[in-house]
Design a protein around this nucleic acid. Structure first.
Lengths: 205, 205
DNA sequence: TCCTTTCTCTAGCGATCACTACAGAAAGGA
DNA sequence: TCCTTTCTGTAGTGATCGCTAGAGAAAGGA
């Protein structure tokens, strides 16, 4: 095992990524300047470029850091809940808490950070859009699996239900950024849960 | 009535506003540059500044133009429908068509055009946020009125229901911008309608 | 001690940002 | 015809954008 050569880095790379994620989360990709980032990270521009390549690569790494921490609750719900319905309910309820936490910016970074992009950074917008649409397809497949195995009613529209869950989540992120609190988002989540099909045989309330 | 003095304007001011609205709708406030706008409007920068003041004022006028045309369907539903529930159902259904029209950018300008703003244009972000929150309060008041007059069940959470309708609409705008089609948005709308309380006495389906 | 390697700092690159000074062009009024 | 008024086109303002060349600093290896 070879020891690292040369002058050691003066900052914690992972901590810098987390600070970068907070900055992008708050203001978005294009509106967060390199100058903003060097201030937030407490390092000079050449250090930033040496460590992360360029602004785009730093953003992608910051998004990955976000997904591994604040944004991991959706993947956890998908992995741990026994049914698609349980996963949706848990995602909606945990989003209400996560999106309004006072410890970090409101809403979801993946949803909000690349909304307004110029053609020059269309690929960044596309990357987050692809992430959202991939999650949408994963949820749809999960719902379809439960329909096929009889856990959800046979007439359930898997595609439409996945779209509804995704749209509600994105609407909650938007509401959180517009000032809604945890109770507000919980009310949205519970209203959405009322629209979900029941688990086995459909029951009236 | 005095005739206008001086050299006449070489372009149609209202048509220019509509083109500006399309540009802001597509890319957002900060990411649409003056250079983009002079190209889209087919005029020089001095003409733009003489006619509209500055970028911010042009944006506000473009938003007003949007609200008077593409964005007017919500206010029309609120004014024309007899009940809050009818208004919500109509808004959701018309949004599915409006947000996915091939004649203009996807989604809603008021929702999407000032998502990623730097501190320098925080007032623009606040203006659109205030517009959204004002519409939210109007809907909540309308719901509360129907609850008070017995049209909606007495245990209806007016605030929560208004939040749910607003969040669903915003989620539909996001989905439209992510590539969802009219049928997709209609599925979201119908799912949301299932979560609404029934008109008079609650009935099972 | 001296070399190599890697990072950091100062300073500044060309491009683009929102915006405008200035002069000429196009209209009505006298 | 000439003046006033208003708009348009050229050309550019200082500021900021993302990014980097080059020199010095801080580590390990010989």
């Amino acid at each position: 095992m070879t020891a690292q050569r040369g002058r050691p880095r003066s900052f914690d790379r992972q901590a810098a990524l987390e600070r970068a994620a907070l900055a992008f989360w708050e203001h978005g990709y294009e509106t967060t300047s390199i100058s903003d980032l060097t201030t937030a990270l407490g390092i000079g521009a050449p250090s930033l470029y040496a460590a992360f390549g360029d602004k785009r690569q730093l953003f992608y790494e910051a998004v990955a850091s976000y997904q591994a921490t604040h944004g991991s609750f959706t993947a956890r719900a998908m992995a741990e809940e026994p049914t698609a319905r349980d996963a949706i309910v848990r995602i909606l309820r945990e989003a209400a808490t996560e999106y309004t936490s006072p410890d970090h910016p409101r809403g979801c970074l993946v949803i909000s950070a690349a909304q307004n992009c110029s053609p020059a950074s269309a690929d960044v917008a596309k990357a987050l859009r692809d992430t959202r649409n991939k999650n949408l397809r994963l949820l749809e497949d999960r719902i379809r699996s439960d329909v096929d195995s009889g856990i959800l009613p046979g007439d359930t529209d898997a595609h439409g239900l996945a779209l509804f869950a995704a749209a509600t989540t994105q609407g909650m992120s938007q509401q959180a950024r517009d000032g809604a609190g945890r109770e507000d988002l919980e009310a949205i989540a519970e209203a959405a849960v009322r629209a979900l099909p029941q688990s086995s045989a459909t029951a009236c309330r």
